[in-house]
Amino acid sequence: MNITLKIWRQKNAKAKGQFVEYPLSDVSPEMSFLEMLDALNNKLVKEGTDPVAFDNDCREGICGMCSLYINGRAHGQETRTTTCELHMRVFKDGETISIEPWRSKAFPVVKDLIVDRNAFDKIIQAGGFISVNTGSASDSNSIPVSKAKADDAFDSASCIGCGACVATCKNSSAMLFVSAKVSQLANFPQGQVEAAKRAKNMVAKMDELGFGNCTNTGACEVECPKGISIKNIAKLNREYLSAKLSD
């Protein structure tokens, strides 16, 4: 296949960015999207041009490092797919593909397609854990947890922290991310001790870091590569409300 890439280039955080077009030929439909970008970069380096900087690591959809807004959609048009799992077979010969970084005040552009998602770490540091020191745990089977709750917790816990939800939300809200962690931990008896504090601290940190409010459009759920449900947000709202009421 032959394609044209329209890619956001930005030298660093302070520089002004712009779209640059690159024609690319001999693209195999079997290539993954990132392998296609590897091929472009291979060509650019040989020509002596700065290659396109993009984040990626595991290339199997689990580390959450890859991002990219492809043709106006986070991780491209396929549902429940990360950019590294996206394959060129879903694009057409002759197509022009636009590629942008995540756009959000809380995720500033670092270079080209790379953004700074450190804000997510800060939210987790504010309370996304159960306070248990190494060595102080009792036998796992001393606290039974219903299979339904454990499965629910797993579904919430499968968030990969990629930030597609924030990039997709018109308000740049991090509610899906925050709520997934809050609901995961609230499903366990040992997580309930700090549940109120956790919800309050994480939400406060999210607000402080410049993420917007949730207006329940549900766009985040549609674009989440791991299918995290907005039911988590309802659950967070309940946790948050009861925390506020008990203040």
Binding site: A137, S140, V145, A150, F154, N187
Partner: peptide
């Protein structure tokens, strides 16, 4: 064995049987 206990206490959602045990 300590590792499993540690992770369970941290809220790692290991697979469970219907009786609620791991």
């Amino acid at each position: 064995n300590n590792i499993i206990d540690q992770y369970t206490a941290q809220g790692v959602p290991f697979a469970r049987e219907y009786g609620g045990l791991l």
